[in-house]
Amino acid sequence: MTLAAPALDCGYHRAGLCDSCTRIDVPYADQLARKDAAARAAVPGATWLPPQASAVEAFRNKAKMVAGGTIDAPTLGILDGERRGVDLRRCPLHEQPIRDALPVLAELVRDARVPPYSVPERRGELKHVLVTSSPDGELMVRFVLRSTEAVPRIAKRLAWLRERIPGLVVASASILPEHRAVVEGDVEVPLTHEQTLVMRLNGVPLALRPGGFFQTNTAVAAALYREATAWIDDVDPASVADLYCGVGGFALHAARPGRDVVGVETSAEAIAGAIETAAATATPARFVVGDATAADDTTVDADLVVVNPPRRGIGALAVRLEASRARHVVYSSCNPTTLARDLQAMPSLRPVRARMFDMFPHNDHAEVLVLLERVSDR
């Protein structure tokens, strides 16, 4: 009997250096079926479309690399059980421009004499290197540092870095002085004049700035926005509120002349990017900084509300949507468990259509898009 081949042959996984991809040994078709079944169980009653598959490698547009090792032999990857660095700079999940850039960035760390942060000893400067790749092959690089001490040495080598990484557009330092299990700090120090990376999806040039959220899988994100836009246009609402809007992906795709579109997001950097895109493309949408769960009643009462929350779901906002005048809700969830909980709090909003989007192959995470329709007027 011949067993089906693993989804992806990864040398790091075979060597026992990384077990982040918990389903990598499972054939991809089986991975997709498992996720689709879990999503369908969370949203009964909807008409389900076939799942949106992903490429099995080179699909991640961002790398969140933990710095480890020493100045002379830095590692970019993860930490092992003893909190020491494991180098994964050739991880096959990352898009090729990221794979090409990581060895150069490791060389910069060494040449600029930036000591990697040691978690056990709580000393050192460089905590993470964050790299994002655009559909046009351009890059944003962020150095997460404990202080600004190493910033001048990195800035001094910026011309060299751009020569070695021609696609580098945005570089900055994120300052994280505390010993915390987070990826970035609250203070951003620009290293390049340009601080916007254009993520061009479906012809919409979304403006991503340091600290702004963007979906990890560009191709699947583009499919997600296309699907949501088609559903929104089908019901043709006069007003749309995009809550947890990030850089405005759903709102900017849904905007039409004569349709009132507003996006709400806590991140000022993300909202600045959304405003930049709307202005550059003359898109009739407006964006405000604010807590989506505390959005004003006028916003929640839009004809159609889009919610794209973090894994914890929308919580109390579900109760407000249930009591609102919204005729439709488009819910994009990265956690079917909290999605199911939130749907139970909105019994007047019936699931009509649903689809699973595989943003993260080789594990059990899935993005689920659901169109809800109010079943009765009140």
Rank of each mutant, 00 (worst) to 15 (best):
D87G: 12
D87V: 02
D87Q: 06
L88T: 08
R89L: 14
R89W: 15
R89A: 14
R89F: 15
R89M: 15
R90D: 15
R90Y: 13
C91D: 10
P92A: 00
P92V: 00
H94K: 10
E95N: 14
P97F: 08
I98M: 08
R99T: 13
D100Y: 10
A101W: 10
L102H: 08
L102S: 04
L102N: 03
P103E: 02
P103Y: 08
P103R: 02
V104W: 05
V104N: 07
A106V: 04
A106L: 13
E107K: 10
E107D: 12
E107H: 11
V109P: 08
R110S: 11
R110V: 08
D111F: 15
D111E: 14
A112D: 06
A112H: 07
R113L: 14
V114G: 03
P115Y: 01
P115M: 04
S118V: 04
S118Y: 09
V119Y: 13
P120V: 00
P120Q: 01
P120C: 01
E121D: 11
E121F: 00
R122C: 11
R122H: 14
E125R: 04
L126H: 05
H128D: 08
V129S: 05
L130P: 14
V131D: 06
T132W: 09
S134H: 06
P135F: 00
D136P: 12
D136C: 10
G137W: 12
G137D: 05
L139H: 01
M140T: 05
M140A: 06
M140F: 06
V141H: 03
F143P: 00
V144Q: 05
L145P: 03
R146Q: 08
S147Y: 07
A150T: 04
A150C: 07
V151N: 02
R153Q: 14
I154T: 03
A155K: 07
A155L: 05
K156W: 15
R157F: 12
R157L: 13
W160L: 05
E163Y: 10
E163S: 00
E163A: 00
R164A: 11
I165Y: 04
P166E: 06
G167L: 06
G167K: 02
G167V: 02
L168K: 05
V169M: 04
V169I: 15
S174C: 03
S174P: 11
